[in-house]
Computed example of a mutant assay.
Amino acid sequence: MTFKTVLLGATAAAAFATGAMAQDDKTKVGFIYVGPVGDLGWSYQHDQGRQAIEAEYGDQVETVFVESVPEGPDAERVLTQMALQGAELIFATSFGFMESVMNTAQKFPEVKFEHATGYQRADNVSTYSARFYEGRAVQGLIAGEMTESNVIGYIGSYPIPEVIRGINAAYIQAKKVNPEVEFRVVWAYTWFDPAKEAEAAKALIDAGADVILQHTDSTAPQAAAQEAGDVITFGQASDMLDYAPKPRVSSIIDNWNQYYVDRVGAVIDGSWQSEDTWDGIDSGMVEIGEITDAVPEDVKQAALELKDKISAGEVHPFTGPINKQDGSAWLAEGETADDGTLLGMNFYVEGIKGDIPQ
């Protein structure tokens, strides 16, 4: 039977001590999550990947995790404790863990680390992420077609390139199908805080938004939209099907399962090496959740067609002509954005109002 250790706050040391009693021949794999595994969003989806590892390898592995780890010094403490207790591979699943990962990796060169959405690597540190912006483009098409007020609200977590890319990708597609559309962005400065997320959603709805997109991890915006009535939403990171068929009309699903299974397999067979992975719809790392019957059939078909064309490489969400917010030229007709620019994106495209916080 697979051995699992759940680590919570002050009991972490005791839980790790228990984990150390597991059979020595098991490959120990650790995870740290920025939110609770029950968030039904980002951390929940990563934990589905952890469970996929257990299902694939059974008694060959032992997995441990710590949930709700703040992005700061406490993350380094948790990572260090995992390494000391024998974890051979550790997945750190939030952007803000980057400094802690690099510091800990330097102290434990024999331990392998994987950092989600980061960009710093070392011989024992890999990075991985998904091209979420591809899914945001599909959401933008649906949002632009379905809005009646022409105001689309977007709840941002932190103003980092990953989030800015998503806002831009959604806006570009929404604008293509509805030239009258307007985006309003509220920055929540959190990945998971239901109260703040609900407040942001309500503020956007009060400002006229009848579509809410989010890059935060709880279902609070879905609940706020449901309470408001004629407002639609999209699931973030997981399907959030409890709110289907409306307000949640579709979703972006982050599917980490195969990546996690493959990387643990590489540790087991000795082939693991530091690398960078950035996959999207084509690999299945980004999935589009069921588009419900609340979406008109022609809009649904257009969204699925866009998804298929992105998957096939026939459409890139960032294809010119596109200007930057200040009107300066960025992409010429038919030109597509390179990965380097996308990875460092720190600007809005033309048409989005407001400033990106610094």
Rank of each mutant, 00 (worst) to 15 (best):
T2V: 02
T5N: 12
L8Y: 15
A15R: 15
A15H: 15
F16T: 13
G19N: 09
V29S: 05
V34C: 05
G38P: 12
G41D: 10
Y44M: 09
H46Y: 13
H46S: 09
G49C: 11
R50L: 12
E56D: 15
Y57M: 06
E62W: 03
E67K: 06
S68G: 15
L79T: 00
Q81I: 06
M82D: 14
M98K: 02
M102N: 13
M102R: 07
T104M: 05
T104F: 06
E114H: 05
E114N: 04
T127C: 08
Y128H: 14
A130P: 02
F132Q: 03
F132A: 07
Y133F: 11
G135M: 00
L141N: 01
T147Q: 06
E148G: 04
N150A: 08
G153Y: 03
G156S: 13
P161M: 05
P161E: 05
Q173C: 03
K176H: 11
K176G: 05
V177G: 03
V181N: 01
R184K: 14
W187A: 09
A198L: 09
L204I: 03
S218K: 09
S218C: 08
S218A: 10
T219R: 12
A220H: 04
Q226Y: 08
V231Y: 08
D239G: 11
V249P: 01
S250W: 02
D254E: 10
D262F: 05
R263H: 11
W272Q: 14
Q273V: 09
E287V: 08
I288M: 09
V295C: 11
P296S: 06
P296Q: 04
Q301K: 12
Q301G: 09
S311D: 03
E314K: 06
F318E: 07
T336V: 13
D339M: 10
G340E: 15
L343K: 11
L343N: 13
N346K: 14
F347H: 14
F347Y: 10
F347S: 13
E350T: 00
G354K: 02
